[in-house]
Design a protein around this nucleic acid. Structure first.
Lengths: 244, 244
DNA sequence: TTTTGTAAGTGTATTATTTACACATACTAA
DNA sequence: TTAGTATGTGTAAATAATACACTTACAAAA
């Protein structure tokens, strides 16, 4: 077993979409007084851990995800590295580090990754009781600089989604145009006109209709689509721009 | 004096524009046989160095720039962190590290920054004899993963320049529209129509004409402009898009 | 069986943006 | 005086973006 690099960690901002809102997976951090066992504070952080000696940072990020959520082979991309001294300037973070990880340097550089999953595939209850989904627009108290981290991850996601069809990572394999529109609206924090949105989608040859309809809904059932990565790479020239 | 973090460095891709081409500042790396003094190889790298314990990584990047070029207070932005094991997979890089820095880990994570300067302000001769400008589209042999690093930095610059008026960092304080167009053409590797380009620029209220003309040119002298950061921030809503 | 509620699905006209394109001008150097 | 060179300018056509309203198919309730 290799040692952890004391100054270097990875943090994963895991985004999930539940067809209503865009969510982030957070893990609870609870500091108890070592003697009285009183709760000193409770807050949340994104999923992170230190990097091992000789471990590629991308692997470190996958490892963290796998370990903390059981998720494997999911969309994962680096977005920014946080390396200021003010990352731990908050008193509670200093207490936490001093009590829990006294041997760790007080200057940790953290490489930020973000990950995209269909939240229906990841229920927060299964064994990982300390992780939980929170809507990005209604976050709880966060540790370290993780508020800034999530904001930056979201900006990065927005810019990426403007250029590339990565939204499908947040949807189930089969989806409707309305689900897709809702997703784009959540990510961009904006409303789109339904007809114009559908016009745009119909130009994306890689969004392919199936001979299948929604079932069990109390309204006209929607047509079901899939995303084809293959077709996307073959027809890449098309510009994708969801500017609001 | 604080110690260097053995696994963590910063690398700066310094871009300069000489009104003809986009250039990158590189430093020569020359490995001699310790006994025979024969040259084993010569190649080039971008400017980099290890991060100090307790040093914010942005400061480390500024420090490297200042130390290697004398430049201070110039445009500097982080773009990506390189942390694969294959960064040093090349044999010559391993030799170099073994001979020159035997105490340094063979797995170094490097935070990549890029910097923008007017190349006329930075002549490669002044005291820093080992640094030299090279056109981005005609680079010499590069050490480590620095080819990929420069490519990624350029992509990042392109995307940034599409959204924000940072091109002026690469131009002298006073410039002509043609110089500006040439710059955009170099960065994007594309040609633009002169009239359409000028139309776009004339919509940028933060590009301000002076009561001044070019002098000593063998053609109709061009009008001189300056960029106003102030006006830019006050009129930010405008969208800037130099998609080709 | 009928009614009600709900989201799906569809086309056109208007406006804004992007593109393509050619000639007169002002200067230096020969 | 002439030749050479980069500057400066406007319009028409094509494309892309926007705004906007009614019919349809289903489940659930009456």
């Amino acid at each position: 077993m290799k040692a952890y690099i004391p100054n270097l960690s990875v943090d994963c901002v895991v985004f999930g979409f539940d067809h209503e809102r865009l969510n982030v997976m957070l893990t609870k951090r609870e500091l108890l007084d070592p003697i009285t066992k009183d709760v000193i504070f409770i807050d949340y952080t994104v999923l992170g851990h230190h990097v091992l000696e000789g471990e590629p940072i991308d692997d470190a990020a996958s490892r963290v995800l796998k370990h903390r959520t059981g998720l494997d082979h999911i969309y994962l991309e680096q977005f920014y590295t946080f390396g200021g001294l003010d990352r731990m300037s908050n008193e509670k973070d200093q207490m936490w580090t001093k009590l829990k990880y006294p041997m760790i340097s007080d200057h940790v550089i953290s490489v930020g990754y973000y990950s995209l999953v269909d939240s229906f595939e990841v229920k927060p209850d299964d064994k990982h009781e300390n992780t939980q989904w929170f809507p990005v627009d209604d976050l709880p108290a966060l540790g370290f600089d993780h508020k800034e981290m999530i904001e930056r991850a979201l900006e990065f996601l927005q810019r990426k989604l403007r250029r590339e069809p990565i939204g499908f990572e947040l949807l189930p394999e089969k989806f409707t145009i309305s689900q897709m529109q809702k997703l784009y609206e959540c990510v961009f924090g904006a409303k789109f006109d339904r007809r114009n949105f559908r016009k745009k989608v119909s130009q994306m040859k890689y969004v392919i209709p199936l001979d299948e309809k929604q079932k069990g809904v109390a309204h006209k059932p929607a047509q079901v689509f899939i995303f084809s990565k293959d077709v996307y790479y073959r027809t890449k020239k098309e510009k994708l721009d969801f500017s609001v």
